[in-house]
Simulated scan of single mutants.
Amino acid sequence: MYYTLQAPTYVPYQDYLGHFARSEDMVLNLILQSIAGERNDELFYQELIRLAPTEKEKEVITGIRDDERKHNQMFRNIYTQLTGTSPTEIEAMEPVEHVSDYLSGIENALFGELKAFEKYRTLYLNIRPVYRNMIFEIMTDEIKHASYYNWLYTKNNR
Rank of each mutant, 00 (worst) to 15 (best):
R121T: 07
F117A: 01
Y124K: 08
F117T: 08
R50P: 01
Q14V: 13
L125P: 09
E42A: 04
S23C: 09
R39N: 03
I143P: 02
R39L: 09
M26S: 04
Y124C: 07
V96I: 15
T54Y: 03
A21H: 07
I90D: 09
G84N: 03
A36F: 06
E113N: 12
S86W: 06
G84E: 11
D15G: 12
E94W: 01
I90S: 02
M134H: 11
L110K: 05
M139R: 13
T140F: 03
K144E: 10
Y153A: 03
L103M: 05
R39A: 01
Y102H: 07
Y120M: 07
F111A: 08
A21G: 14
A7P: 11
E91W: 04
M139P: 10
V27K: 01
D67P: 11
V60T: 05
I143D: 12
D101F: 13
I61K: 00
L5G: 07
L17T: 06
D66F: 04
E38Y: 10
D15P: 10
E142H: 09
S147V: 10
Y120W: 10
R76V: 06
N150F: 00
Q73D: 08
Y149T: 01
M139K: 14
E97V: 12
D25C: 08
Q14Y: 15
A146M: 03
H71V: 01
N150H: 02
D141P: 15
D41R: 00
Y45G: 02
Q73S: 11
L114S: 10
P8L: 15
N72L: 08
K115N: 11
I138Y: 04
H19V: 14
G84F: 02
I61H: 00
R132L: 06
T122I: 13
H71F: 00
R158V: 10
V99M: 10
M93P: 10
G63Q: 06
L30K: 08
L51M: 08
P12H: 00
I61T: 00
S34Y: 04
Y13D: 11
R69I: 11
R158Y: 08
G105V: 05
E91F: 10
N156S: 01
S147I: 13
T80H: 03
T4C: 14
R76I: 04
F111N: 15
Y148C: 05
E55D: 12
N77P: 01
E137T: 15
A116T: 11
N77L: 02
R39H: 02
E118K: 10
Y131L: 07
L114E: 12
R121G: 09
A146R: 02
F75C: 14
Q81A: 05
T54R: 09
Y149V: 01
R158C: 12
E68Q: 03
